[in-house]
Amino acid sequence: MLTTFIPLGVTLVAAPLVPGLINKTKAAFAGRQGPPLFQLYFDLLKLLNKGAVYSRVTTWIFRAGPIVSLASVIVAALFVPVAGTASLSFSGDIIAFAYLLGLGRFFTVLAALDTGSSFEGMGASREVTFAMFAEPTLFIIFVILARVTGSLSLSSMLTQAPLVGTPSMAGLLALVVFSLFIVCLAENSRIPVDDPATHLELTMIHEVMVLDHGGPDLAFILYGASIKLFVMVAMLAHLVFPMPDGSPVQSGLVFGSLMALITIVIGIVESAMARLRMVRVPRLLMAACMIACFGMIISLR
């Protein structure tokens, strides 16, 4: 029974590496040395050892926000395959995956509104608006994969996708990966949609919602964000190149290199582009949605 949870264990352990690698690539592009790869681990340890400061205005919902968002992401990570196998998979778990992410987002927004500050309200409103485009795109991708692989469980969808084999699938693969990549950037508030490293409250989206969290709560939030990023990148990895079904060590190596490759691509995108204007972000997400629909039409032939 224990072996089934290895993929979850790998995810939990390796998740903070991904933001580290992204910051490393951005530093390399900027010609500076940048923080060490394991910087996030050290931050998490530091935060866990701190006390906490809560605003007088807030209720227990503010304290429950980080806990629920982390728990929901961890349970969602159960379904995502790591190196070909997932901890838990049943037909229809894609819906559970999406709605668990929704649950995390719901409680983060409530925690933001609880503080009663206008910045957090602004961030919450933007977060919820962008989610309105990301979710349908995600579901169109799931429908495409369900049509192609004939199954409704996330792990079998991603692993058995005969994408590379047939020529027509190459076009479909490109469309699906591209739209999923944009959704990943939007969900994890990376550069084109939101700048994780900004300090100007008016421009933030995700960061401003967690302004008032400190100490262990902030640790939970950062850790949850990194797991979510790891999970999305893992999905992309499985789509880009199907895992060889040889020994676990071999598929593990392939999976690790793919993850690193995609993370570096994210880093490159972040260093090459600036953040889009707030009005343009819905257009980008709408473009992702149209691309997915186009992929859907192609998959029908």
């Binding site: 929704g102 503080t115 979710e135």
Partner: peptide
């Protein structure tokens, strides 16, 4: 026939927006 799921997802996302707004405006903050 593929339109059903994405539309339901859009409705779900909008519902999250609506009810977080309603609950937040009424019960949370000052």
């Amino acid at each position: 026939l593929f339109v059903g799921a994405p539309v339901l997802a859009l409705i779900g996302a909008l519902a999250v927006a609506c009810f977080s707004n309603a609950f937040g405006a009424q019960f949370l903050g000052v």
